[in-house]
Nucleic acid binder design. Structure first.
Length: 422
DNA sequence: TCTGGGGTCCTAGGACCC
DNA sequence: TCTGGGGTCCTAGGACCC
């Protein structure tokens, strides 16, 4: 059996931990640049807000219902996520963190000594007590069914946070009333296709014969069908390192000058290099893209990108930033109102497996590597961007993201520790 | 005025090899 | 009349996830 532990409205719940007056109130967390709603509480849903709504379009709903708005603060959320995962690791030997707010627990063997429902309710209670984050748990023979269970646990109070699907009767009942397009692995396209084929519920899909499934779907669809029938086949083993690393943002205001774009691209390159070092990797390929605002059809549209291969795979901020700058210079077109830029690193491999180049133009790689890791240390100790590249500092800051409602970094910055007055 | 930011896996088709 | 039979690698695009 697998358990899926899913944090309820995770980003909103994190904010509510530090703003206790918000219990039972509508709360939304916005995307970067304060663009759209990316997380919202059930109370916010009930006043007519949806995930994906541009916030400027729903301003009147927000004001009328006194909805509390937050800019997203990923440092806060990932710090909270780590605390929850560490509690899970104390409860189970095999924990697979699937996303910032979801983990799978492999419970094989636990049924011998524990009642799984009671056991997982204990885990959920502990997370609530120690972090104040509410979670929903689904327990089932496959991960897809466990996900379905967790949705039931979230939506029906009677489950008391834990829904177990451990008999065929419960499985068929769950599949008969669950929304087809909420099934893990069924996106909009597959949903439309299933409807066109006359399939309306997950149960109808699960009951189709294998030959029918194979003739209409390829591997992903077939796997979902197996999982719905109780045969586990989806592997979510965490990759030890990412295959691509990307940092990109919309700008607060439109940007035209090359020097301002350069500041953004160098900053993003530095962020990518930092993520790269964080997972002990090096990258061979650097890509940069820039684009105008696609929603402004009154302006000239332009989107372009380019890539280069480094002579030797690297995680050096200076080298990656320089490569990114060169690419930017080659794709930049004057007279365009730019709205976003981004840097992507790919062809990533472990730091220990660098293929040397006899004609490497950089002669002091070891020193450069020490320089980068020293920058990381200083920034970790004294705060983000204590040490940075001079190109990142422009007088104009309109390339930065808007973030007007951001909470302090309560969990990661000593200056932002919560003060309680009694 | 204002519309996110990351990722993964799979497949088909092309180009190439013998 | 009949025009082989295996492979590999790469890429773009699609679909999905959070």
């Amino acid at each position: 059996m697998y358990a899926l532990v899913d944090c309820n409205s995770f980003f909103c719940s994190c904010e509510k931990v530090f703003h206790p007056g918000l219990q039972g109130k509508p709360v939304c967390v916005l995307s970067s640049n304060d663009g759209i709603i990316v997380a919202l509480t059930p109370e916010a849903k009930s006043v007519g807000l949806h995930r994906g709504d541009p916030i400027f379009k729903v301003k009147d709903i927000v004001e009328r219902n006194d909805v509390k708005i937050f800019s997203s603060n990923m440092y806060l959320y990932s710090a909270m996520s780590k605390r929850i995962v560490s509690i899970l690791r104390e409860s189970c030997d095999r924990v697979d963190t699937y996303s910032i707010d979801e983990s799978f627990l492999d419970l094989r063997g636990y049924e011998k000594n524990f009642n799984l429902e009671t056991y997982m309710r204990g885990v959920a209670d502990r997370i609530r007590l120690w972090t104040d984050i509410p979670v929903s748990v689904g327990v089932a023979p496959t991960k897809t069914l466990a996900k379905i269970g967790s949705k039931f646990a979230k939506n029906y109070r009677g489950y008391n946070s834990v829904c177990v699907i451990d008999t065929d009767e419960k499985r068929r009942k769950a599949l008969s009333i669950f929304d087809l397009d909420d099934v893990w692995g069924v996106g909009r396209r597959t949903w439309e296709k299933l409807l066109a084929l006359g399939v309306r519920t997950p149960l109808e899909f699960a009951d189709k014969p294998e030959g029918w499934v194979r003739s209409h779907f390829t591997k992903p669809g077939f796997q979902t069908w197996c999982e719905l029938n109780g045969y586990p086949c989806i592997d979510t083993e965490e990759a030890s390192q990412k295959q691509t690393i990307c940092t990109s943002h919309c700008f607060k205001d439109m940007v035209t000058g090359l020097d301002v774009l350069k500041a953004s691209v160098v900053t993003f390159a530095g962020s990518c290099a930092n993520k790269l070092r964080g997972q002990g990797s090096v990258a061979l390929c650097v890509s940069v893209f820039i684009g105008s605002n696609p929603f402004r059809d009154d302006l000239v549209q332009y989107w372009n990108g380019g890539s280069v291969r480094l002579p030797v795979a690297s995680c050096d901020t200076l080298e990656i930033a320089l490569a990114a700058t060169r690419i930017l210079e080659s794709i930049y077109r004057p007279g365009i109102f730019y709205k976003r830029s981004g840097v992507i690193l790919s062809e990533i491999s472990p730091d220990s497996l660098i293929q040397q180049d006899l004609f490497d133009p950089v002669s002091n790689r070891d020193e450069r590597k020490r320089l980068s890791s020293m920058m990381d240390d200083m920034n970790r100790r004294f705060g983000l961007k204590t040490v940075r590249l001079a190109v990142e500092d422009t007088e104009a800051d309109h390339w930065r993201s808007r973030s007007e409602y951001r909470s302090p970094n309560y969990l990661t910055d000593i200056k932002d520790l919560l003060v309680v007055k009694c």
